[in-house]
């Protein structure tokens, strides 16, 4: 799960390439234009490497932090079918983190360092996971709509230029589509269930709509900077384009279930073909991403505690005395 890469609009346009060898840069850009994938040992601009590390790392953090709100419901999932499916789903998310950390490591930043930057608050992760999953229905809405948003984003990124990242994304997208099916099935059962179940899912949807609208990030104005990153196939689509794709695919499905979205202005403009909506509260988005959301402290505290509790294990793996032994049976 993930929101789109954030690009600082205040960066000077020529800063991305100013120190690069023009011949190598031209070759590099020609390869990307031709649809080649860039591999770890290939030459690449410093800024390409930097942006990718940041983006893949944030994506990895989002997967691992994203496993927490749903993870707390594993022990409460109602019935065998949901229990097994939810464990498998959350496990997949942790697996995505593992794949993505490995992809980012190919660019030169070790996993341990990335995790340290996560728990120190230095690197970011998707803002949606700073909101609580209050009831079982919240997990259903997350698995359906947040995973749906993640798919829109990840499908776009899977057409990118960096080999290890796009290969990881291909695998991840295949699994995310199962999550989406699981989430949708879950929401359908609630929305067509008892009055209590319908109430639960409506309330969860109302709670999650603002974070969902925040998911793809604020409108990004097209700068020279974003143009370069798009030319390098690091950034694949604008935040607004992805939000439109998402709304177009899922709002009709939500309405079909008889559920209500808490935005009276939400409608598709038949002339432009675009969705219109009340502008999300970007001040809140900024506040939450900078650490002041309902769950930021809790999420990082859980992660920090897991890291601390597991330190002796990781040390034991590094010990010179530790040895690999073939299993006996």
């Amino acid at each position: 799960m993930y929101g789109n890469a954030y690009i600082d609009p205040s960066l000077a346009p020529n800063k991305l390439t100013q120190d690069e060898d023009p011949i190598k840069l031209a070759e590099f850009e020609a390869r990307i234009a031709a649809g080649d994938k860039i591999e770890p040992k290939d030459w690449m601009p410093t800024e390409y490497r930097k942006q990718l590390i940041r983006m893949i790392e944030q994506h990895a953090h989002s997967e691992i932090i994203g496993s927490l709100p749903e993870g707390t419901w594993i022990t409460r999932a109602p019935g065998f079918r949901r229990k097994l499916a939810l464990i498998a789903k959350v496990q997949d998310e942790v697996g995505h983190a593992q794949l993505l950390y490995s992809a980012a490591e190919t660019l030169g930043k070790p996993r341990e360092e990335m995790i340290n930057d996560l728990i120190s608050g230095k690197s970011k992760y998707s803002n949606v996971f700073n909101y609580p999953a209050i009831t079982w229905a919240d997990t259903a809405v997350i698995a359906w709509l947040i995973d749906a948003g993640a798919i829109v984003n990840q499908l776009a990124n899977s057409k990118g230029s960096y080999g290890p990242y796009v290969r990881a994304l291909d695998r991840i997208c295949a699994e995310e589509s199962f999550h989406l099916k699981y989430g949708h099935d879950n929401v359908v059962y609630l929305a067509t269930g008892t009055p209590k179940q319908r109430q639960m899912v409506q309330e969860a949807l109302t709670r999650w709509w603002p974070p969902i609208m925040h998911f793809f990030g604020p409108s990004d104005k097209i700068s020279v900077h974003t143009e370069t990153l798009m030319k390098w196939k690091v950034k694949m689509a604008s935040n607004d384009d992805m939000r439109q794709t998402f709304l177009n695919m899922y709002v009709p499905k939500i309405w079909d279930l008889g559920l209500v979205l808490p935005d009276p202005n939400l409608k598709k403009n038949t002339e432009t073909g675009l969705w219109e909506y009340t502008e999300p509260d970007w001040e809140e988005f900024k506040r939450v991403i900078n650490g002041d959301g309902p769950c930021n402290a809790e999420r990082l505290a859980v992660r920090r505690q897991a890291e601390e509790k597991g330190r002796w294990v990781r040390q034991a793996l590094l010990s010179k005395d530790s040895r690999y032994v073939t299993p006996l049976v």
Binding site: V302, A306, K309, G310, V313, L317
Partner: peptide, 9 residues
């Protein structure tokens, strides 16, 4: 899930 000493665990 989500709390192991290493992700692999």
């Amino acid at each position: 899930t989500g709390l192991g000493p290493v992700l692999e665990e």
